[in-house]
Design a protein around this nucleic acid. Structure first.
Length: 287
DNA sequence: AAGTCTGACAACCGCTGCTAA
DNA sequence: GTTAGCAGCGGTTGTCAGACT
């Protein structure tokens, strides 16, 4: 179907941003804050499309960005999150403070892919290459509904019904506590099947707990938060029980709104902290 | 020194999902 | 229920610097 262009292309600059454009954008957002990207260029006196402004701000001009090389811990965390979430770069970026989805995506394509291949792992499936290149297995997995990593999004399983604990590879995932409302839907069954299926594969030691998600009242949920049946919601209340290096990195990724200076106490108590005292990533709300 | 290749990354494009009218 | 507008996402492309021949 497509959509009309977001702006008059004939009257917009393209290509690399100049220092002057950067400064205009920074100055404008410093005064007016983020929001309404469509009207921002005109208001800020920029001959750019709103999407371009948003991208430039989010990926390069935001003050909280961490520049520089990725650490080994970040590498491993990205790999683990990718194995769990697939190419959901924005979700992965949400767990890495100061990193952007674009940055992680580029880094994945240029570094981590090769790193995994050198380890003999398929970057998409995180399985041994000799296993995934086996025609029958590959075909079966690719076409099967069992492997949710090959689908555009994880299975739409109510998060409240998952208590999946990624454990060291010796522990069968069948032991995970799946509760059911009694009427098992096809989707749920598929997911359960997939877990059983994957239980017989080498499991990454993710040290991530996808625990029971406590009920969130409307007041504690961002108005723009999407359905719980999303990959984001699967990790919304992620805690890191093991103080390993990667877990510590992730645990520090916690409260972006605090990092951005929105840490008036009420905001964080209500929006970032769950009843267990763990924090989750949160985008700042528009003022 | 010049030309070519390669890797890294910034930016663009098209699409999706959400929301309000 | 439908439509349009918007923000945001992920795939892809373009550009440039450094390595290599």
């Amino acid at each position: 179907m497509g959509r009309s262009p977001c702006c008059e292309k004939a009257h917009t600059n393209k290509g690399a941003w100049t220092k002057e454009e950067d400064q205009r954008l920074i100055d404008y957002i410093r005064i007016h804050g983020e929001g309404c990207w469509r009207s921002l260029p005109k208001a800020a006196g920029l001959l750019r499309c709103g999407k371009s402004c948003r991208l430039r701000w989010i990926n390069y001009l935001r003050p909280d960005l961490k520049r520089g090389n990725f650490t080994e811990e970040e590498d491993e965390l990205i790999i683990k999150l990718h194995s769990l979430l697939g190419n959901k770069w924005s979700l992965i970026a949400g767990r890495l403070p100061g990193r952007t989805d674009n940055e992680i995506k580029n880094y994945w394509n240029t570094h981590i892919k090769r790193k995994l291949i050198s380890r003999g792992l398929d970057p998409q499936t995180h399985r041994p290459i000799n296993e995934t290149t086996g025609a029958s297995i590959t075909t079966a997995v690719k076409s099967s509904r069992l492997d949710f990593r090959d689908r555009s999004s994880p299975p739409a399983l109510p998060v409240s019904e998952i208590n999946l604990i990624m454990k060291p590879k010796t522990e069968s995932i069948e032991d995970a506590n799946f509760t059911s409302s009694g009427t098992t839907t096809e989707e749920e069954q598929d997911h359960h099947d997939s877990q059983i299926h994957r239980a017989h594969e080498p499991q990454p030691n993710l040290e991530l707990t996808i625990g029971l998600v406590p009920f969130q009242s409307e007041s504690t949920r961002s108005s723009s938060s999407s359905s719980l049946n999303t990959a984001e919601s699967k990790l919304q209340w992620t805690s890191f029980p093991c103080p390993s290096a990667t877990a510590m990195v992730a645990a520090k990724a916690v409260c972006l709104c605090c990092q951005l200076g929105f840490q008036n106490g009420e905001f964080c108590r209500n929006c970032c902290q769950n009843p267990n005292g763990f924090y989750r990533f949160h985008r700042p709300l528009n003022p």
